[in-house]
Simulated scan of single mutants.
Amino acid sequence: MSTRPDTFQIPAEVAERYEAEFVPSLFAPLAVRLVAFAGITAGDRVLDVGCGTGIVARTAADRGGAATGLDLNEAMLAVARRLRPDLDWHRGDAAALPFPDGSFDVTLCQSVLMFVPEPAAALREMARVTAPGGTVAVQVWGSPQSQRGFRPLAEAVARHAGADAVDLVSTYFRLGDLDALVRQCDDAGLAVTGVETSEVTLHAPSVDAYVTTEIGSTPLAERLDAAAHDRIRADARAGLAPFCDTSGALALPFEIHLVRARPA
């Protein structure tokens, strides 16, 4: 995950918390799914665009791929380099990839495209750096209307930070129209060969842990004081209670889309 890193650099402690909490609970299983969906095999040259702390690149490497990760966020890259110093990590822009044409057999983008200011430009760049006959595979989140696990947090943010603040925590879902995304791929020179829609579950030890990391990894964190944070957490506890077990652990359902394509 990346959070508009061109305009918002998360602190190191948030990147570490993201890796410790969200990666094992959600993004690692998603990475396994995306890598399998892309059909990565041993020896494939793989690019992970918007790599964050590098879970997709690491997963591709574990399947024998020669993995490279790219992100604009220095804190995320610092974690990625610490965890897998053997892989190739680059700071760069998804809309201006610093690689020659046809450099990779497989280009992946997990939970990031919606944070890029110009997704169409990023898709064109992914098509450009992917070799003829190669694969581009992206994962995005479904539309806000389909995210029943997100509504309680959105409502709490709206009540305590204003309706406009919801946009800062709902950017995940702005590419949730699958038909529109397929058209964007076509316009970018990518021939779509497969799509998949399913529901995944985000696990967190508590509502407070989820809200703290969710807000802390978005630009909303810069707008809230401690009191507003506390009010949002308290409100979210009530709204998200139906998704908690008796220990207080949280399991939130989210819809995702996977799109697989080849450079046209």
Results as ranks from 00 to 15, higher is better:
170 S>G: 02
229 H>R: 12
147 Q>H: 03
166 V>T: 06
117 P>L: 10
126 M>G: 06
235 D>G: 08
197 T>N: 12
214 E>T: 13
178 L>P: 04
201 T>W: 10
203 H>V: 11
170 S>A: 12
208 D>H: 11
179 D>I: 00
142 G>Q: 05
191 A>V: 05
207 V>Y: 06
103 S>R: 05
187 D>Y: 00
208 D>C: 05
152 P>E: 04
130 T>N: 02
197 T>E: 15
126 M>D: 08
186 D>P: 00
153 L>Y: 01
193 T>N: 06
105 D>M: 05
190 L>W: 04
224 L>D: 10
193 T>A: 07
200 V>T: 14
215 I>D: 10
234 A>P: 08
244 C>I: 07
170 S>N: 10
117 P>V: 10
193 T>D: 12
218 T>D: 02
208 D>A: 15
234 A>K: 10
164 D>W: 01
189 G>A: 11
190 L>I: 09
110 Q>I: 07
109 C>R: 06
126 M>C: 11
120 A>E: 14
199 E>R: 12
169 V>C: 06
104 F>C: 12
123 L>I: 04
241 A>F: 00
186 D>Y: 04
107 T>E: 02
126 M>S: 08
185 C>L: 14
119 P>W: 09
210 Y>A: 13
201 T>F: 14
198 S>E: 14
151 R>G: 08
209 A>W: 02
210 Y>E: 13
135 T>L: 03
189 G>I: 11
233 R>Q: 10
204 A>S: 15
218 T>G: 07
207 V>E: 10
121 A>H: 02
143 S>R: 13
140 V>A: 07
188 A>M: 01
131 A>H: 05
225 D>Q: 04
144 P>Y: 01
185 C>Q: 11
237 R>A: 15
111 S>V: 07
117 P>S: 09
156 A>S: 13
125 E>F: 01
107 T>I: 01
175 L>E: 09
190 L>R: 03
240 L>F: 07
125 E>I: 02
151 R>E: 14
134 G>F: 07
126 M>Q: 12
192 V>N: 08
158 A>S: 12
112 V>S: 15
103 S>C: 05
146 S>P: 00
141 W>S: 03
119 P>S: 09
152 P>C: 06
117 P>Q: 08
124 R>P: 00
150 F>A: 15
152 P>H: 01
203 H>M: 12
199 E>C: 06
205 P>G: 15
135 T>D: 06
128 R>P: 03
131 A>E: 09
147 Q>L: 07
170 S>C: 02
121 A>L: 10
240 L>W: 07
204 A>V: 11
157 V>P: 00
241 A>R: 11
207 V>G: 06
174 R>E: 13
201 T>H: 14
134 G>I: 05
147 Q>P: 02
120 A>P: 01
236 A>M: 13
102 G>E: 11
160 H>Y: 14
220 L>R: 00
141 W>D: 01
175 L>I: 11
123 L>G: 00
211 V>I: 15
239 G>W: 06
226 A>W: 04
226 A>D: 14
185 C>F: 15
139 Q>L: 15
157 V>T: 04
153 L>E: 02
116 V>S: 07
161 A>K: 03
190 L>T: 05
225 D>C: 10
122 A>C: 08
118 E>K: 03
118 E>F: 01
167 D>A: 14
192 V>H: 07
138 V>D: 06
209 A>L: 05
104 F>S: 11
